[in-house]
Simulated scan of single mutants.
Amino acid sequence: MAAISSRAAQAATFRLVMWGFTLMTVFPFGLLLLTSLKSKQDLFRGAFVLPDRPHFENYVSAWVDGHFGVYFWNSVIVVIPVVGIGVLLGLLTGFAFAFLSFPFKKTLFVMLTLGMMVPGEAYIIPLYYEMRWLGLLNTYAALILPQIAMSVPFATLFMASAMQQLPRDILEAARIDGAPRGMILRKVILPLMGPAISSLGLFLFIWTWNEFLIPLVLVNDDALRTMPLGMLFFQGRYTVNIPVLTAGAVIVIFPIIIVYLIFQRKFIEGLTAGASK
């Protein structure tokens, strides 16, 4: 009985700690959301005071006057090809590193690992001159192509690691049956990689949506700015109007929360797949 009560106490303590961390995570966003629904007069009444009515016009002002409608669709135009092509290339290159033998395999693997360690600040200036030489500055290509290249090292290592955890007997059975590599990838591996693909897609979506340095350096046309960069210039114009400013911040954050909630189950499965084997 003492052991059971001890385990129950430990479980209760663990739940309390987790709830505490959850509240610490949710509280800032809740305060941000509350502020975005206030008027300027409501702010003077206190940060935690509820407004007399929700001021959704703050979101209209941010969307229209702050050009967040343009920034939002620019981010969507950039995110879709980066995530789609990044996941596709990750599948192909991950399959190669996981199951195929080819020259300089270990060397290329080390180069990919080093590519993940190099900060963007180290290559942003050469990247700027390269994009200028190609005539791609102030274009969607300048936002999409570098981020696809940046996603390949992580996508390759992530998918190769996930594929190496697949049951070997299924793959050996496909090889014995004489299935070609392309069919093995499409018919055997791909159906088993759903959680890993969802996790990789979510990672790439968050990183691409939040990317700031590449749009800042390679784009100076307001019609091509993405959400984080647009938030910077929006903040400079609306520093005094805190409710409209926080409404813009909610617009930037909200798509990430929605995408995570949609893929939450697959994301957790993808991260914990190796632990259950």
Results as ranks from 00 to 15, higher is better:
Met1Asn: 11
Ala2Arg: 14
Ser5Val: 08
Ala9Met: 14
Ala9Lys: 13
Ala9Pro: 00
Ala12Trp: 14
Val17Ser: 10
Trp19Ser: 10
Phe21Lys: 00
Thr22Met: 14
Met24Ser: 12
Thr25Leu: 15
Val26Gln: 04
Val26Tyr: 04
Val26Trp: 06
Val26Asn: 04
Phe27Met: 13
Phe29Ala: 02
Leu32Met: 12
Leu34Arg: 06
Thr35Asn: 02
Leu37Gly: 02
Gln41Cys: 00
Asp42Ala: 13
Leu43Val: 03
Gly46Leu: 07
Ala47Leu: 15
Leu50Thr: 06
Pro51Asn: 04
Arg53Gln: 14
His55Trp: 13
Glu57Ile: 08
Asn58His: 01
Val60Asp: 07
Trp63Val: 04
Gly66Cys: 09
Asn74Gln: 10
Ser75Met: 11
Pro81Thr: 11
Val83His: 06
Val83Ser: 06
Leu88Asp: 02
Leu89Ala: 04
Gly90Thr: 09
Gly90Asp: 04
Leu91Val: 14
Phe97Arg: 12
Phe104Lys: 13
Lys105Thr: 01
Lys106Arg: 15
Leu108Tyr: 09
Leu112Phe: 15
Thr113Leu: 15
Thr113Phe: 14
Thr113Arg: 04
Met116Phe: 09
Gly120Trp: 00
Gly120Ser: 11
Ala122Gln: 08
Ile124Asn: 05
Ile125Leu: 15
Ile125Ala: 13
Leu127Pro: 09
Tyr129Ser: 10
Met131Ser: 13
Thr139Arg: 10
Tyr140Gln: 06
Ala141Met: 09
Leu145Glu: 04
Gln147Ile: 11
Met150Trp: 12
Ser151Thr: 12
Ser151Gln: 11
Phe154Leu: 15
Thr156Pro: 07
Leu157Cys: 11
Phe158Gly: 02
Ala160Phe: 03
Ser161Arg: 12
Ala162Pro: 05
Pro167Tyr: 09
Arg168Ile: 09
Asp169Pro: 00
Glu172Arg: 13
Ala173Gln: 12
Ala174Ser: 01
Gly182Phe: 08
Gly182Ala: 12
Met183Phe: 06
Met183Asn: 06
Lys187His: 13
Ile189Lys: 06
Pro191Phe: 03
Leu192Thr: 03
Met193Ser: 11
Ala196Lys: 08
Gly201Glu: 03
Leu202Phe: 03
Leu202Gln: 07
Leu204Asp: 05
Trp207Gly: 07
Trp209Cys: 03
Glu211Gln: 13
Leu213Val: 06
Leu216Ala: 07
Leu218Ala: 05
Val219His: 07
Asp221Leu: 09
Ala223Phe: 12
Ala223His: 09
Arg225Glu: 01
Met227Ile: 15
Met231Thr: 02
Phe234Ile: 01
Gln235His: 11
Arg237Cys: 00
Tyr238Phe: 15
Tyr238Ala: 08
Ile242Ser: 00
Pro243Asp: 01
Val244Arg: 14
Val244Ser: 05
Val244Pro: 00
Gly248His: 04
Gly248Phe: 00
Val250Ala: 05
Ile251Gly: 04
Ile253Asn: 04
Phe254Ser: 02
Ile257Asp: 03
Ile257Val: 15
Ile257Asn: 05
Val259Met: 15
Ile262Ala: 11
Arg265Ser: 14
Arg265Trp: 03
Phe267Ser: 03
Ile268Trp: 04
Ile268Phe: 05
Thr272Ser: 14
Ala273Ser: 15
Ala273Thr: 13
Ala275Tyr: 04
Ser276Gln: 14
